[in-house]
């Protein structure tokens, strides 16, 4: 059910400005890969290159099938679920409607009944507010909704862009506990994260981006022991 993602020599541009150079990246089925790096390192651009929402060049394979020329909605329907930066919940739509939008990605794959129950088990907070407009939710609830919407599309791989951004520590704990549950259940994830502690804690493999290129990669343990990496790219934060 979970998929493999492989990027080879990927470049990406914002307009005429190149933002990513020669990215090689491999997420094995069920693996959690964390992208670390300061603001402007290219984490979101890399996520968007996979999503197909920036101009990109190079090979991007999902389970061996090229998606590097596919359009964003096709990539979503192929099984890449996304939780964009700043939540990406849809204002004006209720929580239930947001979740129904999420199910669109799964429709073509005939995956039967939707995963509403699973999502509400994972985030019980959402159960009581299905009729509430999404924009009236707190930041944490919106993040839960964004993750729920991605999950209801039955993704085979989940991309998360800064899932901890702007959230209170206790909410971050809830979110990351849920993500660990999903990882334990075998869902592969690529998580862009500025918070190094969280990024290291959940990762099978860590990739450090800086100025649009990959600066380092390895397991959390390998990179945690590398003081240079911390000093230069992680702002010295202790893992």
């Amino acid at each position: 059910m979970t998929a493999e993602l492989r990027l080879t020599a990927v470049n990406a541009w914002y307009g005429k400005v190149q933002a990513l150079w020669n990215i090689d990246l491999h997420v094995r089925p069920g693996q959690v890969v964390t992208l670390l790096g300061p603001n402007g390192a290219g984490k979101t651009t890399l996520r968007r290159a996979i999503n197909g929402t920036v101009r990109r060049q190079g090979s991007i394979l999902l389970d061996g099938r090229p998606i590097d020329t596919a359009r964003p909605h096709t990539i979503a329907r192929a099984g890449i679920g996304t939780v964009p930066q700043d939540r990406g919940t849809i204002p004006g739509l209720t929580v239930a409607e947001n979740l129904r939008v999420g199910a669109i990605a799964a429709r073509k794959r005939r995956s039967g009944d939707d995963r509403l129950d699973e999502v509400l088990t994972l985030f019980p907070d959402l159960a009581g507010m299905l009729d509430r407009p999404a924009q009236l939710l707190s930041g944490g609830q919106q993040q839960m909704l964004a993750i729920g919407r991605a999950l209801i599309g039955r993704p085979r791989l989940l991309l998360l862009d800064e899932p901890s951004q702007g959230l209170a520590p206790i909410v971050v704990d809830t979110i990351f506990t849920a993500l660990k549950t999903l990882a334990t259940d075998g869902l592969g994830m690529l998580i862009a994260e500025q918070n190094t502690r969280l990024g290291f804690a959940i990762a099978d493999e860590v990739i450090v981006l800086g100025s649009g290129v990959i600066r380092a990669r390895g397991t959390a343990a390998e990179l945690a022991d590398s003081p240079d990496i911390q000093a230069i790219y992680l702002g010295g934060g202790a893992p």
Binding site: N51, T53, R71, P72, H73, A76, R77, T82, P84, G88, T89, I90, P91, G92, L93, E97, R100, V101, G102, I104, A105, A106, R107, K108, R149, A150, G153
Partner: peptide, 24 residues
């Protein structure tokens, strides 16, 4: 309707809608 839901979603949040599988 589902089409209407897609139209409302696409109008309110084009990029998020695409990432949920909506053909913008």
């Amino acid at each position: 309707t589902s089409i209407g839901l897609r139209m409302r979603a696409a109008a309110a949040a084009p990029e998020s809608s695409q990432l949920s599988g909506i053909n913008l």
